[in-house]
């Protein structure tokens, strides 16, 4: 405050003027605006070309997007993803526990499984399962090294396209998810297990109630990566002529010759599935982050509600004045 300035120094240092009535003006960032304008122009140009270029044939896309055959293919894709995703992660969990066990045999079997399935192309695995009948004519269940058989069937009748697809995708998925789950379990501090056993909590509950909920934080981002990869990975079973989404649109464009629009149909569906999964991922990760963060961030919905209650509700009162 100028009032405090000692009068003796008034000649050499002039008293500080009173700025209390001045307005504060934030610094301007002109280059930020230039960048924003350039990017906006680019985005607009792309959008414009998507809308106006007739060769995208949006009419055809719209026509086929909800066609019965495409929807059937979509359902097959979802079915394959769900079944091989769930089975893959269950098997992966077992493999991860084997890998972490104290038995050298379990450890090496688990390691070998991951090694084999991660080092062979999925395409080869699928074709191998589908052609298993060539290697083993019959599949039977009985007592090994004897002639006792409880069940016997031709391999070709047992392994349909669907069975081969599920087998291939599941086993491949299991090999990858085993590593993800193992990584998650390793990320939990050893002291947690120790504290749980000191409290007399049984082994199974130690895993499910203490270790896994904490491991989930490390597992989830990778697991969703895998599931999203799997959604599109199912398209590879077209080699078995299995009519999932991708194979279906292929069949259609081979007939109609509208290649790009139909690929776009499939792509848009994959985008939709991935978007839905991403929303799930957000909320599931949020659920498992309780206790890991001091305060949970607001969900987009809560943020929107807060925005509307503070801003929109505030505007009418301003207008009223």
């Amino acid at each position: 405050m100028s009032a405090i300035a000692p009068p003796a120094t008034a000649d050499t240092a002039p008293p500080t003027p009173d700025y209390s009535e001045y307005k504060l003006v934030p610094a301007r960032h002109p280059w930020r605006w230039v960048g924003t304008v350039l990017v906006a122009a680019g985005v607009a140009a792309i959008a414009w070309s998507l809308v106006t270029n007739p060769r995208w044939e949006w009419g055809v896309v719209a026509e086929w997007f909800t066609a019965q055959s495409v929807v059937n293919g979509l359902i097959e894709t979802l079915k394959l993803t769900a079944i091989s995703g769930v089975l893959g992660f269950v098997l992966g969990f077992i493999l991860a526990l084997m890998r972490l066990s104290a038995s050298p045999l379990l450890v090496s079997v688990s390691w070998t499984f991951s090694w084999i399935f991660r080092s062979t192309p999925l395409l080869v695995q699928l074709l191998l399962w589908y052609n298993l009948g060539y290697l083993y004519e019959k599949i039977s269940l009985g007592i090994p090294f004897t002639d006792v058989r409880f069940f016997e069937a031709q391999t070709t009748t047992l392994i349909s396209q669907f069975a081969a697809a599920v087998l291939g995708l599941t086993l491949n998925q299991a090999a990858y998810s085993a590593e993800i789950i193992r990584g998650g379990i390793l990320s939990v501090d050893q002291g947690q297990l120790e504290a749980a056993s000191a409290l007399g909590i049984p082994a199974w509950k130690r895993s499910t109630r203490i270790v896994l909920p904490q491991a989930m934080r490390a597992i989830l981002p990778n697991a969703f990566n895998e599931i999203i990869g799997l959604v599109k990975g199912t398209s590879i079973v077209y080699v078995l002529a299995y009519s999932e989404l991708f194979y279906t649109v292929q069949v259609i464009y081979n007939r109609t010759q509208q290649v790009l629009p139909l690929l776009l149909v499939a792509t848009l569906w994959y985008v939709v599935i991935t978007s839905v999964l991403s929303v799930f991922q957000y909320y599931i990760e949020r659920h498992f982050s309780k206790g890991a963060l001091r305060t949970l961030p607001l969900t987009p919905l809560q943020r929107a509600r807060k925005f509307f209650t503070t801003h929109v509700a505030a505007t009418p009162t301003k207008d009223a004045r």
Partner: peptide
Amino acid sequence: EKDILKQRTNIGMVFQSFNLFPH
């Protein structure tokens, strides 16, 4: 294991690094 866990319920333990379950 089962019987050891039962015995442990008679013995409380407090650790240097707390080892509370963070979740």
